[in-house]
Nucleic acid binder design. Structure first.
Lengths: 158, 158
DNA sequence: TATTGTTATACTCTATAACTATA
DNA sequence: TATAGTTATAGAGTATAACAATA
């Protein structure tokens, strides 16, 4: 098993350790890296999983809707869908009413792949949050979700 | 002011919304992007700030110690320090006892720059956490810190 | 003229490995 | 031979802008 990149020491200055932004940034990278390793064997990278998860919920979506739902750049979506389509996990079908639109759907294989990926995601999640008590995990999820959906007064449109 | 990249819609499937790893990953990117915009005018990028913050705490550190403290790859550190040194914020002095080692220190200008950057970091932090009550912000910081220092049983060495 | 999707390009962060110089 | 730092290279994620087809 690979050792992974270096881990910050315990000697970080209080300034960083008290900075939620810094911690979010570091933990976000850790989460993505671990999840990426967990699903690499499935031929998926983290951004793919988000797409599959959204598609698993709904029957079909236009690419623009998919991009909007996940906050992904539409230009980036193209390549990600190309890869999923080449793996046979997704199909793009032209919309009869508006031929600019492509309805994106999971294939049967796509549905199966999501199921496996879900289990790996759950395992990674358990590892990430192993140091917290169950109630703390829920509290953390609740707080993160509040931040994630927040339409903000900040510097950019997020 | 720039609008920034797309924001995920509120229609994310529960699967993602309940996944702390996914939320951490997204929020970590948001935090880094905003902070990066906030300090770009200072000629700094996010990784620079961590270095300056650590150096502000101690008098001098070898590059290997700096890399270890922040969990940064030593090879990556070189370029970051090059940039800081060219900006006159940092100096590398050969260690008399072991000439392989370089003692890295903040310059006076470096100290001043950290002070300004700190204020911007605080402003970004306030914006990021604007949706939470003060007690919730503390709770979030506490939980994130617990995760960050966690030596884990997970898949990699982190 | 606006919108959907596509293509091309570039930038940042990160990781890996080979190399130099000291020890 | 091992360690500190350097260099070169590569890969992933993301953003921007110009473009084609369709509306």
């Amino acid at each position: 098993m690979d050792e992974g990149p270096p881990e910050p020491g315990t000697k970080l200055p209080a300034e960083l350790v008290e900075n939620a932004g810094y911690l979010l940034s570091r933990l976000g990278l850790r989460a993505r890296r671990r999840f990426g390793e967990a699903i690499a064997g499935l031929g998926l990278r983290p951004p793919h999983f988000g797409l599959l998860a959204v598609l698993a919920d709904r029957d079909a979506l236009a690419q623009s809707e998919l991009a909007e739902a996940l906050g992904i750049d539409p230009g980036r979506l193209v390549g990600l869908l190309d890869e999923l389509e080449q793996s046979g996990l997704v199909v793009r079908a032209p919309d009869a009413e508006d031929r600019r639109r492509h309805a994106v759907k999971l294939t049967r294989a796509g549905r199966d792949r999501v199921r496996v990926a879900r289990r790996r995601a759950a395992a990674v999640e358990a590892g990430l949050l192993a140091g917290l008590a169950p109630a703390e995990r829920d509290e953390l999820r609740r707080l993160l979700l509040r931040l994630a959906v927040q339409r903000e007064s900040g510097a950019d449109g997020q």
